[in-house]
Design a protein around this nucleic acid. Structure first.
Lengths: 221, 221
DNA sequence: CTATTTATGTATCAACCGATACAGAAAGAT
DNA sequence: ATCTTTCTGTATCGGTTGATACATAAATAG
C-alpha cells in the first residue's frame, strides 16, 4: 500500500506537487471509511457528522478533499466498484461457459455478500441503495443505471452463449438474465437479514437447477 | 346475560362516543395516505411535512390521532398487512399442495408488486424497508421480524408437505424456503426498478423449474 | 342556554442537517 | 528566514427535522 497518496515516479511528484501545506490525512483511507459507512447506512441516513467522525477529520477538510456529500457518495461508489466487484465478477468474466459464469457469479456473491469478517457490511451496496427519488434524482438515476448494467452484462453473456450454441436458440435470454438478477438481488436482502454464506450457497444451488431445467430443452414453459 | 330485544347494542354507540369535538378528518383515509407515502419513500425520507400535506391535516392533528412518527409508521405497517398481504398470500393459504402454494405466491407477487395503476408504489413495503439500524433499532427489529415471519410461513408449509408425502423426505426444506424468499425479495427490487408483471412472471416460472428439479429426487445436489 | 371536552390552526421549540467564513497553523519555494 | 499557498479547527450559517404551547373553534351533555 502507498502512503498518503504520494506518487512513486520522482519527476512527476516534483512537477505535480502543490506548493502549500499538504493534506494531513490519507485520502484513500478516508474514502474507504466513507464507503463502508454509506454501504452500511445508505446515503440519506449517513450524516456529515457520521462521516467526519469515522474519517477522523473536520467538515472543512471533507469539503476540501471531496466537493460535497453527493460527490463523496459518487466517489464511494467508484471505490466500491474498484475494490469489491472483482470478488463477484472476476470468475464470471473468466468462465468458459455461460453456465459456469452464472454459477460462479451466484456462488461468489454468496461469499462476498456475507463476508463481514473484515468489517464489510452485508449485502451489495448498489442493490441495497435506497436513495429516495425526490431531491436526489441524480443519485437515484445513477443507482438504477448501475443495476441495469448488471442485467445488460448478463444478457450479453447469454446472447453469446446462444450464438455459440451452448444454449438452445429457444432460450428466453431476457427472462433467464432477469431470473439470475432476481436471485442475486434477493441474496443481498437475505444477507442483510443475517443469512450466512452456506445458506446463500444453497439458494444458488437451487437457482442453478432452475437454470438447467430452463436451458435443457425448449425452455420448459 | 342480556335481555332479549335490542341486539344492535345501541348502548355501546352512545356510551363510547366521546364528549368533545369529533375529529374532522377520516382517520382511516389519512392512514392510507401515510401508508403509501412510507411505502414509496421509506421511513427516514418521509418527513412530517410530507405526511401532513398528503393527509391534508396539521401536525398537531397528526400527533393527536397517532402518537408519533414511529407509532404512525407501525400503524401504516399494520394497514399494509391488512389491505395488501391478502393479494399475495390469499391463494397461498388456499392451495392444496405446497407447490401450488409457492407458485401462487410468486405469480401473485409478480402481479401485486407491479400493480401501480391504483397509486400503489412498486415493490413490497416490508422487503424494501431500509430503516437504518442506528437510532431506530426498534423499527428495524420489527421489519426483520416481519421478513423472518415470511420464511417461517414457507418452512411450515414445506414441512407439512414433507409430512404429507408431497415432497420427498430428503428435501432441504430450509434451503428451498430461503430460495423462494430470495426470489420474492429480488422481485421487489426489480419491480422498483421498473420491471413489469410479465417479466416477473417469467422469473417466477424459471424459479418453479428450480423447485421442480429440487423436489424431483434427492434434491439434485 | 351554559358548561365541558376535544380538535384545529398558528407559531414556535430545540436539535440536527449540509455547507462555510474565518483565522491560524504548517510546509514547500525562494 | 521569509513568502506563499494550502490545509485544519472552531464556530457558525440558514434551513429542515420531529414534536408542542397556546389560544381558538366546534360539538355534545346537561
Amino acid at each position: 500500500m502507498q502512503k498518503s497518496g504520494q506518487i512513486v515516479s520522482a519527476d512527476e511528484t516534483a512537477a505535480a506537487r502543490p506548493r502549500g501545506r499538504p493534506r494531513a490525512f490519507d485520502r484513500e483511507a478516508a474514502l474507504a471509511k466513507a464507503t463502508r459507512l454509506f454501504w452500511l447506512k445508505g446515503y440519506e441516513a449517513t450524516s456529515i457528522a457520521d462521516l467526519t467522525e469515522a474519517m477522523g477529520i473536520g467538515s472543512p477538510s471533507l469539503y476540501a478533499a471531496f466537493d460535497s456529500k453527493e460527490a463523496l457518495y459518487l466517489e464511494a461508489l467508484r471505490y466500491y466498484a474498484d475494490h469489491y466487484s472483482e470478488l463477484v465478477w472476476g470468475r464470471y468474466d473468466a468462465a468458459a461457459t455461460a453456465r459456469q459464469a452464472v454459477e460462479c457469479l451466484l456462488l461468489d456473491s454468496a461469499a462476498a455478500l456475507t463476508n463481514t469478517c473484515d468489517g464489510n457490511p452485508p449485502g451489495c451496496m448498489v442493490t441495497l441503495s435506497s436513495v429516495d427519488g425526490e431531491g436526489h434524482a441524480e443519485l437515484d438515476a445513477r443507482m438504477r443505471r448501475a443495476r441495469a448494467a448488471m442485467l445488460d452484462r448478463l444478457e450479453a453473456r447469454l446472447d453469446q452463449a446462444v450464438a455459440e450454441g451452448e444454449l438452445p436458440a429457444s432460450t428466453d435470454v431476457q427472462a433467464l438474465a432477469r431470473f439470475v438478477q432476481t436471485v442475486q438481488s434477493g441474496m443481498s436482502i437475505l444477507a442483510r437479514d443475517g443469512a450466512g454464506r452456506g445458506e446463500l450457497e444453497a439458494v444458488a444451488g437451487i437457482a442453478m437447477l432452475g437454470w438447467d431445467a430452463h436451458t435443457r430443452d425448449g425452455g420448459g414453459i
